[in-house]
Design a binder for these strands. Structure first.
Lengths: 228, 228
DNA sequence: GCCCGATATTGAACATGTTCAAATGCTAAA
DNA sequence: TTTAGCATTTGAACATGTTCAATATCGGGC
């Protein structure tokens, strides 16, 4: 399916991509060699580098695919759901659903987290575009609800950050079907939404409001994108 | 100083260690080669591997040193300080203080974060000991205060996690003296302590208590150490 | 003083990610 | 059809982290 209706190059790239993922899934990221991948795709080693700048970038390409699938899935499942909590649940659980068979090599995404200048750093300039896309999904989930404008702006970013943590947890989670991660995700989302809900109660608002302000202020201040 | 009163091996190890850090600081982690390090320490390449199992492990050794210094510094500065907020401030800011000149290669610590089985993974089994040590420092900071027993148990762990995030932020922080990270740290600590304080107010306690319970429950459930 | 096992050191070899100059194939303009 | 230019492909070469068999050194028991 994915090898049809494409230029020669596109087809080769697709083959390399698919064979790489196959090997990553079967044997793991580390032990899979670029030579293995090339051999499996029946091309020379250099060909892999003609299409992918690095081994990790193959995983990055995979993750781009994941993002597209996720956006689509969320758009589908979100229609009809109006509550914030429910919508966030859709966004997060569907993501984990998509990733469920690939925990084995997902860790490669985090390899350059500590390297601000690396093009594949999760928090770096080089991944601005992907990050925006990912945040946009949470924006969509939040958009359909009645939260304040301020929250509309910052919540998606916070959710993206939280969801990164969940993915990391996910990678380490050896429980059946990664139920533990799903539970944790639900817990975190409960917290998010309940904290927002609290602002609406006249009684406790004066106590909670400053907290929310503070958290939002910190998020704004800490924002990698907006700041100095 | 550090090369005195040691067996030959110890001395060699120390030289390699110092030269390595020197190079990491001067040129960065990535561009520094094991051959560079060995040459700089006037030993053969293999010697470096006789003492350190990998290039990253040198940074790990550095971090062990950091932990020791941190523990010492905290013990010193903590005496006389009784308030929780103040004590946590000491723990966190002193750590950043110690790390301040080494942001350039600190990222290497996070290289295997996505790889549960790697001996140097921040969250993995292989770093249990270091993790415990690090948590113990926060334990010490919390211990001198009047928080509940439950909190005594879980807060340090949560603080350790939060402080990891701060270090990551720190690495990316290009502001003068990393003031932004220090501000963020203060903000986070404020949040921690204020949330705890709230439990003591009879009025809002019924609202806040369940939150705290939920968060603690999640922490417990999520604990890498305790669980199944 | 001599020998032995443990410790320390060497440097070549290896594995693998990556680069690159050269060869090949393809397409569209002439 | 020919050909210039571009895309694709090749495989050897390179850089660097890491391993390892061989050698040297040392410290203590005789």
């Amino acid at each position: 399916m994915s090898t049809a209706n494409k230029s020669a190059g596109e087809k080769t790239k697709a083959v390399i991509f698919e064979k790489a993922l196959e090997l990553f899934r079967m044997r793991g990221f580390e032990v899979t060699t670029m030579r293995d991948i090339a051999r499996s795709a029946k091309v020379a080693t250099g060909a892999a580098y003609y299409y992918f700048p690095s081994k990790e970038s193959i995983v990055a390409a995979y993750y781009d695919q994941v993002q597209r699938r996720h956006a689509e899935k969320v758009r589908l499942e979100l229609s009809g759901k109006a509550g914030l909590r429910e919508r966030l649940g859709v966004a997060v659980h569907s993501k984990l659903e998509i990733l469920k068979d690939d925990r084995m090599f997902l860790g490669a995404l985090f390899r350059y987290t500590g390297d601000p200048d690396h093009p594949l750093s999760v928090f770096g300039k080089g991944t601005d575009a992907q990050r925006s896309q990912s945040v946009a999904i949470f924006q969509e989930a939040v958009a359909g609800t009645n939260v304040s404008e301020e929250l509309q702006e910052l919540l998606p970013w916070a959710l993206w950050l939280a969801h990164l943590g969940m993915i990391l947890f996910f990678i380490y989670d050896e429980t059946e079907g990664q139920q533990r991660t799903h539970k944790l995700a639900d817990g975190i989302l409960d917290l998010f939404t309940q904290l927002i809900e609290l602002t609406r109660s006249a009684l406790v608002r004066p106590f909670v409001q400053p907290f929310q302000r503070k958290i939002l202020g910190m998020l704004r201040e800490a924002g990698w994108t907006g700041g100095t």
